[in-house]
Simulated scan of single mutants.
Amino acid sequence: MKKTIGIFAGMLLGMSSMAQSITIEGDLAGDLKGHNKMYLYSRTYQDSADINNGHYTFKIPYKDPMFLMLLPQYIQAERQMYVPFGVLFDKPVTYTITSDISKGMNASVVKGSEAAELLLAYGKEKSEVYGKISKALQSEFGTPWMEETDPKYAAFEKRQSALQQQYLLPLLQTLVKQHPNSYAAVYSLNDARDIATIAQQEQLFASLSKEMKATKEAQEFHQFGEGLRNSAIGKQVKDFSLPDPEGKPVKFSDLKGKYVLIDFWASWCGPCRKSFPHMREVYQQYKDKNLVFYSISIDKSKPDWLKAVAQENNPWLQSLDDKNIAGSGFAITGVPTTYLIGPDGKIMMKEVGFDESGNGEIEKKLAALLGGTVKSASKAIEKPTAAQTTKAIPMAPLQ
């Protein structure tokens, strides 16, 4: 009998751990003019709740930490400017979110976990820092933002990076040093990918607690440093194997001896999907030459990837990056990003974003190497403009 009770108790404990959930209790003050819905979303998640007398509730199954965005229907309906507002849900507890529609969602007060509160506080400090950086750039260049086609862009970008090192990096380093065992520190490491040196990234990772170092997101950040070394022009690509839509392995070394165009993309990436019609034109031009097209998706959701693959029906190799090759092998910070690999397996070129004019540098290189012509993605355009060059969408550790 005791054994039976023990087994039953064990089953109940197992069921309770499997049934963990997050509860969000929200209060939104102000006149919503009848637009009484709150949307909760990420790149791979969508939900909504009714707002009754200024109150709304979400109940979400919990498996791993999530970073989810909140958007009141009122903002969409009234066509107000929306500054994205997200909350880190790092444990299965009840979170309270108190907001006022007249002050904007970013003025919300969030309670429930220390990590959620820390990340919001860090976000507000970052906003102040970005204000300082913009003011400095405005003073030096006459503008806080500049098109890549501007002759001064190289100097502008260099100065911007220096200012980020001066103001933003110390903020991140302080957060990680003071809260090494917080998921807020792990999530914020994503900021370092563009502003910190490899040595600084390694020091940030080393500052984390043993528990936080073991998280998937921290491991992927650590691998990113390895990717920076591995993805330099002229580097030999380390062999890797990823599954195709049928689950069969695609081994990179099997492609050696040919030029390989690796396209990193995602189902949720609009510019990636927009680039495919022109990529199909380029593919048709070179499909009988010594060139292999290979699309690698960074999707976290396999069903979403498979659905997009079926919709696009691209006639070349497809794989899902289930081993973080994007980070450890190529240091991808946004999609679309394209690499051209030589027949010897060495990296020749890298292109971030999508040039819809058809005048991308890799496309020009293919024409020179394989005797083709650069094809415009639509009508003939002599010179690409900033409006025709689409920047990559940044990746996030929590999708």
Rank of each mutant, 00 (worst) to 15 (best):
residue 248 K to V: 09
residue 85 F to G: 05
residue 365 K to A: 15
residue 93 V to R: 03
residue 109 V to C: 02
residue 354 F to N: 06
residue 128 E to C: 02
residue 153 Y to F: 15
residue 211 E to K: 15
residue 383 K to Q: 14
residue 48 S to E: 14
residue 243 P to I: 06
residue 107 A to N: 12
residue 147 E to T: 07
residue 108 S to K: 06
residue 164 Q to H: 14
residue 235 K to E: 08
residue 76 Q to N: 10
residue 130 Y to V: 02
residue 62 Y to S: 01
residue 123 G to Q: 07
residue 124 K to D: 11
residue 41 Y to I: 00
residue 257 G to N: 04
residue 338 T to S: 12
residue 94 T to D: 01
residue 42 S to R: 03
residue 64 D to H: 09
residue 272 C to H: 09
residue 25 E to T: 09
residue 330 F to G: 10
residue 150 D to K: 10
residue 303 P to A: 08
residue 345 G to C: 13
residue 222 H to R: 13
residue 140 E to K: 13
residue 278 H to E: 06
residue 200 Q to W: 04
residue 157 E to I: 08
residue 319 S to F: 05
residue 391 K to D: 12
residue 77 A to T: 07
residue 267 S to I: 03
residue 34 G to W: 11
residue 94 T to Y: 00
residue 358 G to W: 01
residue 92 P to E: 06
residue 363 E to A: 12
residue 120 L to D: 09
residue 330 F to M: 04
residue 176 V to M: 05
residue 352 V to S: 15
residue 277 P to S: 09
residue 334 G to I: 00
residue 221 F to P: 01
residue 72 P to N: 06
residue 104 G to N: 03
residue 130 Y to E: 12
residue 331 A to G: 02
residue 20 Q to H: 05
residue 151 P to M: 03
residue 28 L to H: 02
residue 206 A to P: 01
residue 242 L to N: 02
residue 224 F to M: 05
residue 303 P to L: 10
residue 121 A to S: 13
residue 261 L to N: 07
residue 99 S to M: 10
residue 100 D to T: 06
residue 281 E to P: 02
residue 153 Y to S: 06
residue 296 I to L: 09
residue 35 H to S: 12
residue 274 K to A: 14
residue 90 D to V: 05
residue 375 K to W: 00
residue 59 K to C: 00
residue 390 T to Y: 11
residue 165 Q to L: 10
residue 98 T to D: 12
residue 386 A to Y: 12
residue 4 T to C: 06
residue 320 L to S: 03
residue 304 D to L: 08
residue 123 G to R: 10
residue 170 P to R: 08
residue 271 P to C: 13
residue 322 D to L: 07
residue 365 K to T: 09
residue 208 L to M: 07
residue 116 A to H: 01
residue 228 L to W: 00
residue 228 L to P: 00
residue 212 M to G: 01
residue 361 E to M: 13
residue 226 E to K: 13
residue 364 K to R: 13
residue 287 K to R: 14
residue 247 G to W: 07
residue 312 E to F: 06
residue 205 F to L: 14
residue 391 K to L: 12
residue 396 A to C: 01
residue 51 I to Y: 06
residue 68 L to F: 09
